[in-house]
Design a binder for these strands. Structure first.
Lengths: 330, 330
DNA sequence: CTGAAAGCGCTAACAG
DNA sequence: CTGTTAGCGCTTTCAG
């Protein structure tokens, strides 16, 4: 069932049918109605592939994340995918398994069949990303590379809020359980939390890098205890949960003996006992915004690649994993 | 950078370049090496769209789930996507938001740009699915429709195991907190658990239908208590967690006063306190198997649509949300 | 083993 | 407003 069949059945030329579907305002009302009616009757659906070949635009986007199963991503993927559909795009979702080589290969593969790519928390080096970004519109999430558009979550502010919260609870010695090497988010947290601690004359140690998983948190337990800190900020909720587990195994109670703050505000943190105090990350808005930015870039390819940068706010959600530093005070 | 540029630079005809990339055994060794070298030097990448247009195969698949953010899906999506890539396919992931209309529309849209679709726990009626499946290879997950391939998780066995476990703990009155209307899984559980209970002369009540969420579990609390059951099987982990929350609010302790079994074995259940006893579902294998089946169907389109059906095993993971029925025995 | 030629289904100037 | 005419980049007979 091609455009030709419809043309014949409707007694018009193929170009008229084409216009009826892609530029209906160029067709006389009567003709349009007839063509559409015939097309519907015949069950005609334009072939997207042929369309893509002539126009050079696929209306497909790529979304690359490090681990689909990490609870941080699903809300972002969901929002991105849903918003893309509203704008008439479909999205390929791909998972790098936290592997830099897979990440690069994936970008290369996807590049051949999409109009643009959203890269969430890429682990690749700046220059590699910049080079790949020369061929294809990119939008980064939680990563800054000169010359590329980005959607950032204000994790620096979130980390500062966490320090402030812990300081107010009387903690005079904090530790940061860092994320994986190459993580922009982790670097931001470190800088911001470090500064916030320094401003208050609070001692601040860093443990890591660590895998961004529960296991990463468990593994970091000994090192955290060695610092002697009484308040800990973890790279994300998963790490925080793992850490709490590790502490539990050593009879260190949270929040009685140690306060722990997570980052992300995932379901996992809400369900954990103690319920996690955490920095809420705007994952769904980030997904939507990234797609919006990307489509904007794609659809105005004539102009210079617009280097837009949006920062989304974070906030602190106080729950049960943090408490005052001095047990006797409670 | 097209096939023509490479042909010219290598001093061969375009068809030779084409063969070098899609049927290299048809090209003399020397020629092949030269063509590939030139192509690499020029940074040539075959245009997938053009390829798809001539071959009629996109090497793209669709994966439709009801809610990406439901923790049941991410491992399945991850496995499906990763396995598809190994086989040279990319996958569009789409979310129906538990809406039947969206589901149908999505299938129609995707149909135009993929070789086949994996439908996970669809909510559409059998006849609608069967009709849509006439146009395009489908593989269903956790749903049976005559004439279509399916990957099933043996939740019936899982439910029976749960009943057995509860029976052994001395529970003489069980309740099932059912899932949403239209759910094949829920229907399976109900039948299997009902039978297993009857076999043991155990009283068995059903509460529902309920939303497949934490909130659904909370909402069901009162009805569950009204049954008087001391052992409960919930539609999934989320519902179980909600139920435990609801019970907690009414000072009913789990597992002291009531035992609760979930289904899925998601992170959520593991993190919950008490840690959830649950029926483990093979989500990752299901994703892989579904894609495997789909590709097989796609790549042998010449023969009749093979109606394969695979059932994957489930198992019971006993943790802390179940205990013996008689408190004095502990 | 390689070249020539005919499209795949559609869009996009260009005429009229 | 509609028809004509070239392709988009590639695969795939069919010859040689």
């Amino acid at each position: 069932m091609t455009i030709r069949d419809v043309a014949q059945a409707a007694g018009v030329h193929v170009s008229t049918v084409s216009r009826a579907f892609s530029a209906s305002h160029l067709v006389k009302r009567e003709t349009l109605d007839r063509v559409l009616a015939v097309a519907a009757e015949l069950g005609y659906q334009p072939n997207e592939t042929a369309r893509a070949l002539t126009t050079g635009r696929t209306r497909n986007l790529g979304l690359i994340v490090s681990d689909i199963a990490n609870p941080f991503y699903p809300p972002l993927i969901k929002a991105a995918q849903s918003y893309a559909r509203v704008r008439g795009y479909q999205v390929f979702v791909a998972d790098t398994d936290e592997d830099v080589r897979t990440e690069e290969e994936l970008i290369r593969t996807l590049a051949r069949q999409v109009d643009g790519v959203v890269l969430v928390s890429p682990r690749l080096a700046n220059d590699v990303i910049a080079r790949l970004g020369g061929d294809l519109p990119f939008v980064l999430v939680n990563r800054q590379v000169p010359g590329l558009s980005a959607v950032l979550m204000d994790v620096a502010h979130g980390a500062a809020l966490a320090v402030e919260h812990l300081a107010e609870l009387g903690h005079g010695h904090l530790a940061l359980v860092a994320g994986p090497r190459g993580s922009w988010t982790s670097a931001q947290m470190r800088r911001a939390a470090g500064r916030a601690a320094a401003d208050r004359g609070i001692r601040f140690d860093v443990v890591g890098p660590n895998a961004p998983t529960e296991h990463g948190g468990i593994t970091a337990t000994a090192a955290v205890l060695r610092t002697g800190a009484t308040g800990v900020i973890a790279y994300n909720d998963l790490v925080a949960i793992g850490l709490i587990e590790g502490l539990h195994d050593r009879d260190v109670r949270v929040p009685r003996d140690l306060s722990v703050v997570g980052v992300d505000d995932t379901v996992a943190g809400r369900l954990n006992r103690p319920r996690l105090t955490t920095v809420a990350m705007p994952t769904a808005p980030a997904g939507r915004t990234a797609v919006d930015l990307l489509i904007q870039t794609v659809e105005t390819a004539d102009t210079r690649p617009s280097t837009a940068q949006t920062t989304l706010a974070t906030s602190l959600v106080v729950r049960d994993s943090t408490a005052t530093a001095d047990p006797s005070a409670r």
